[in-house]
Design a protein around this nucleic acid. Structure first.
Lengths: 240, 240
DNA sequence: CATCCGAATATTGTATACAATGACTGGGCG
DNA sequence: CGCCCAGTCATTGTATACAATATTCGGATG
């Protein structure tokens, strides 16, 4: 079975910079998000020039912007490093994410449109199909993550605040969530799915408080799951 | 009477870029915040070069960063404009500010140190001295605003989240608040002062809910006061 | 007279050259 | 042997030159 509906709902950064500069920005950003440039990696302009095939000028502009967006740390006269996140900072990120996503859900509960509700419901249905069989899940992890993103993005849209979307996007991209979500257990993904169903119910019933409460739970549970993975992983590492 | 205690509490952006670039960044940013570069103003690189006395390279870097921080809008191949804010967007800003400052106050209530409490109390005392006499107030508006900033910054510090501070800083700088705060009525400033006193009480008693509630009120009231000024001002303008 | 086209001009985008700063290495000295 | 200093190399910061793209303005045409 192939699952390929709802393809339009994810809005990528509509940023526009001039051709070359934009390409460099995207390239570096992707490399950071995918983990190819690990946290702490020193990025030398010369290497990036080689990678992107243009001169240092657009590379430098991209680096400055990425630093302003907190993907990088730039030390004057010493260059750029991919930002590292302490566990305290990640806690902080999740705390704020719970606050902001909760707020978004509350706002969405009063404003969401029928078609947006439908989008979420459809995503939920597809998710449950994927979750039914272990084999299907393994083959469709990426699809599962995409559906997750669609659900959240739709809620943000419904909340109707551009700025809120911006803040949330950055919070989430910077937290290492995406990179590690593929390791979540089936049980964890099922829990997440159940949250989504309840969030849908809360939105449909137009109850801001309910939507906010369950959304916050959803985030806190995700944080817990993530820290569990991190712990296990570190334990593995230390055994080698 | 001169009021000049508490001078250390305001932390300016500790940003570091290389000498020239940093200077340009600060210059342009200041010009925007002070209103010298009004919203909608087109900023040509050539002019900024002349203003800052360096070449286009650092100017361009500063512009890109300011755009990433949402002070400017850059249209590719067409240059930079100082960002304009619709009333809807400003409403949105205040909504988010209430959420985040409320959260900060709640966090601060459980974590604030004695010396931080003392700082707030001292600022409150100085504020009330300024408010006692109309003449004093007129002469010390700037000082009043500085004390206000000290109180809020101290609470943010106490909340203990760097990222929260960053978000709030940008939200507030971008809202036109500072530019128009000088026009607030004495009654309005007194109300604000009373809020500060109650916030202090809530923090001292270690009550997160109380601190959050009164802080949110504080922001909503500020928003209301601001929109009143804007309305009156527009009415004046239309009479000319 | 209005409109459309195009050349001239202004402005931004990119590449390169040069300057300045920091890191690294090797030799001299205690 | 270790430390320090100086000189060299690597890397980033700035200025300038050139390319690409937008804007403006004048003239031709309906």
């Amino acid at each position: 079975m192939t699952v390929q509906f709802l393809s339009a709902a994810i809005k990528v950064h509509p940023k526009k910079m001039s051709k070359s500069s934009d390409a460099v920005y995207r390239t570096i950003r992707e490399s950071i998000l995918s983990g190819e440039f690990a946290p702490g990696t020193r990025l030398k302009e010369a290497e990036l020039v080689e990678l992107c095939g243009c001169s240092r000028t657009p590379v430098r502009e991209a680096l400055r912007i990425l630093a302003a967006e907190d993907y990088l740390t730039i030390i004057p006269n010493q260059g750029a490093e991919v930002k590292t996140w302490s566990s305290d900072e990640i806690d902080d990120l999740f705390q704020l994410r719970a606050l902001l996503e909760g707020h978004a859900a509350a706002q969405a509960a009063s404003r969401i449109s029928l078609s947006q509700l439908e989008t979420i419901q459809k995503a939920n249905t597809l998710m449950s199909e994927i979750l039914i069989q272990p084999a299907l899940l393994d083959a469709n992890i990426e699809e599962f993550l995409r559906l997750n993103q669609i659900i959240h993005n739709t809620i943000w849209e419904a909340a109707g605040s551009e700025r809120l979307i911006l803040m949330l996007t950055r919070l989430i991209e910077q937290a290492v969530v995406v990179k590690t979500a593929r390791q979540f257990s089936r049980a964890r993904l099922t829990q997440s799915h159940h949250h989504h169903i309840e969030i849908y119910a809360a939105l449909k019933s137009g109850s801001p408080s309910w939507a906010e409460a369950i959304t916050r739970s959803h985030i806190y549970a995700a944080k817990e799951a993530l820290s569990t993975i991190a712990t296990v992983k570190n334990r593995d590492d230390s055994l080698r």
